[in-house]
Simulated assay, not measured.
Amino acid sequence: MAAPARSLCHIAFHVPAGQPLAQDLQRIFGFQPLAAREADGWRQLALRSGDAVFLVNEGGGRGEPLYGLDPRHAVPSATNLCFDVADVSAAARALASRGCSVPVAPVSVRDAQGTATYAVVSSPAGNLSLTLLERAGFRGPFLPGFGHVPSATGPGWVSHVDHLTLACTPGSSPTLMRWFHDCLGFRHLPLSPGEDPELGLEVEAGSGRGGLRLTALQTPPGSAVPTLLLAESLLGATDGQDQIEQFLAQHRGPGLQHVGLYTPNIMKATERVAVAGGQLLTPPSAYYLQPGKERQILAAGHEPSLLAQQGILLDGDKGKFLLQVFTKSLFAEDTFFLELIQRQGATGFGQGNIRALWQSVQEQAARGQEA
């Protein structure tokens, strides 16, 4: 592999001036300001909850934002994943030798807290760039060039990033999987027994609503990189654009569709998000009425009526369960969203929950079209 990723440092967003993403992350999701920088027409604010760090690049001035690339997106979006690597210069050379575009060659940034070296690589998921970062010995709160921002001391209700989901064009998952394997050290993670990595997991929504193909990737044990999910629409007739197709159309290509944020207490986290004004997706009404669903929820130690009230999905068996709740889009374009996830022993992604999420997004889109 060219540049094995050791950890996810941060996820970067590009938004226009005045877009309230940074405020929403604080007010609704409990993130706290970590560090800030203003230069060349850019306002960059890093926010943290546990080990999850988001970097909001606001504006769009001359040149590139520090530690990233200005992609000139058609819509506000999550545009960059920053990974820690052992040797940025060697990684950039290795990736370039494989034919990868390196629009920002290795550059070092120094301040009183130490030095960091980074390079930016174009990924095959068109709208998503990757920053490779080397910051051994840096002692500051975030990265060189950023100033500390005083914030509240209370911890947020998110502990780390659980997974990252890319919206991909139909048929592209095998190519993307090989790229992330060869370049960053990701490996196929089966979501079902005996799964063919070239085919992934097919989840049909039913009733002619289409569905999606999921391929999961993970880095070797010992790294701190979240699971990467490649999601593409299943070929077949649907009523209008599905959620993946809508993302591809609005973003004019593939990119980061949603981020799964791990919380140790999804009931409390969901309640806080709702009280703060966060908008959550409502699961299909039939979800909690499925045969065996009430028994499953009780076996996991939860009250069915409370989960239904908060829109929390639960899947799993044999003492291993997965709880998830999904927000509506963080942007007016109705594309990128967040997920809160809690695992009780489960390591995968429940097919029943995937199907329910798909139906929820499709029903939400249908209601928006009728309004």
Rank of each mutant, 00 (worst) to 15 (best):
R6D: 04
H10P: 05
P16S: 08
P20R: 10
A22T: 08
Q26L: 11
F29W: 15
F31E: 02
P33K: 09
A35C: 07
A36I: 02
D40H: 13
R43I: 07
N57A: 11
R62L: 14
R62F: 04
G63D: 04
E64W: 09
D70A: 14
C82W: 03
C82R: 05
F83H: 07
D84Y: 04
V85E: 05
A86M: 09
L95H: 06
R98L: 12
C100Q: 12
V102H: 07
V107W: 04
V109L: 13
A112M: 11
A112I: 11
Q113D: 13
G114L: 11
T117W: 06
Y118K: 13
A119H: 07
V120D: 03
V121M: 12
S122I: 03
P124F: 06
L128W: 05
T131I: 11
T131R: 08
R135P: 01
F138E: 01
R139I: 01
P144A: 02
P144Y: 01
H148L: 12
A152Y: 09
A152Q: 14
G154W: 07
W157Y: 14
L164M: 15
P174I: 07
L176Y: 11
M177W: 01
D182S: 08
D182A: 13
F186Y: 15
F186R: 09
F186M: 12
H188I: 09
G194S: 06
E195W: 05
L201V: 05
L201N: 02
L201Q: 14
L201K: 08
G210C: 07
L212Q: 10
T215K: 02
T219L: 03
G222L: 08
L229K: 10
Q246P: 01
Q246N: 13
Q250S: 11
H251M: 11
Q257E: 12
I266Q: 00
A269T: 03
E271R: 11
A274S: 15
A276M: 07
G277E: 04
T282P: 00
A286P: 03
Q290L: 13
Q290F: 00
A300M: 02
P304G: 00
P304R: 00
S305A: 12
Q310W: 02
Q310S: 02
L314Q: 00
G316D: 00
F326T: 01
S329D: 10
F331P: 06
F331L: 14
F336A: 12
F336Q: 14
E339F: 00
I341Q: 00
Q342F: 00
G345Q: 08
T347H: 13
G352V: 00
R355E: 14
A356L: 09
W358A: 15
Q359T: 10
Q364R: 15
A365E: 04
A371H: 14
